[in-house]
């Protein structure tokens, strides 16, 4: 434990589905300003852990603290508004909406727009403008501003990943959870992504990166948490984790397919 209170603190979290334990006794913290990696073989419980953190799945046991306050009973959209943004392993962009509209949904979620304002044109101009500003800002960050008018469905897979990141950035997240952002990207796109992650972090974003791509994780993360079979088996610097015998056996040894 470091001196500063962690931004996110996951304590003794377990999630069971009937008799099946998806995760058990998971403890981890995320310090503000860090890039923390979470790795683990398929079925290790990474997605369950993120569903618990983001309020989508209530934990069977344990607590999650955000800036020292418990959040496990809050609904997903409230947790998102607290400043926890995320992207998805399987893309969840809005395919029939334009790139701009996709991102402005994120800005809308963050800035808010009471429904009565929406029905009265002219009221709430400043909020509407704040949403537009935030949307352009997020689009500029990922380099999609010039494609704002296109339908999301028409973007390439790699660009849709960036679109999803932009949408999450528009929610002004203090913690950005990236769920396998390199999945489906080629090497040069992954390298570009690593650059983006570093620059987001340099801009002040705390990042929790879930990834299969070892080079990416080891390249950008200062700390890596390893899950296997629903439990945390290691937690340390990339070098420490790579040397850890349990990790080598449970994860690195089993993953010769490079997935």
């Amino acid at each position: 434990m470091t001196g500063a209170a962690p931004l996110l603190d996951v304590r003794d979290v377990a999630r069971r589905y009937g008799g099946v334990t998806a995760i058990a006794n998971v403890n981890m913290t995320v310090q503000a300003g860090e890039i923390t990696g979470v790795i683990g073989p398929n079925g290790a419980g990474k997605t369950t852990l993120f569903n618990v953190i983001s309020g989508f799945t209530p934990p069977s046991e344990g607590q999650v603290f955000w800036k020292g306050k418990p959040i496990v009973r809050l609904s997903t959209h409230r947790i998102a508004r607290l400043g926890i943004g995320r992207t998805f392993q399987n893309l969840r962009v809005f395919p029939n909406m334009t790139v701009f509209d996709n991102v402005s949904v994120g800005a809308l979620g963050h800035i808010g727009f009471p429904a009565w304002r929406a029905l009265v044109p002219g009221v709430g101009q400043s909020r509407a403008q704040a949403i537009i500003r935030k949307t352009w800002e997020a689009l500029d960050t990922v380099g999609l501003a010039d494609r704002a008018g296109e339908l999301a469905a028409n973007l390439s897979y790699g660009r849709r990943r960036y679109l999803e990141i932009a949408r999450a950035l528009a929610t002004a997240p203090e913690l950005l959870i990236l769920d396998e952002p390199a999945a489906g990207l080629n090497d040069s796109e992954t390298a570009e992504l690593a650059g983006l992650i570093r620059s987001l972090n340099a801009g002040g974003a705390t990042i929790l990166l879930v990834e299969h791509d070892m080079a990416l994780v080891m390249g950008v993360c200062r700390r890596v948490v390893v899950l296997a079979a629903g439990r945390k088996i290691a937690d340390g610097s990339p070098a420490e984790v790579q040397e850890d015998a349990t990790v080598r056996q449970a994860y690195l040894g089993a993953s010769d397919d490079g997935a």
Binding site: F56, A80, F94, D101, V105, A118, L119, A128, R167
Partner: peptide
């Protein structure tokens, strides 16, 4: 196409969970 409630409705219609995770109160 011109209001924020409509923006949310279109987002939900495209991907409800995606909308939920960016802070849209989907129930509302």
């Amino acid at each position: 196409y011109r209001t924020k409630i409509g923006l949310s409705i279109r987002a939900l219609s495209d991907d409800l969970i995606g909308a939920l995770y960016v802070g849209i109160n989907t129930d509302r």
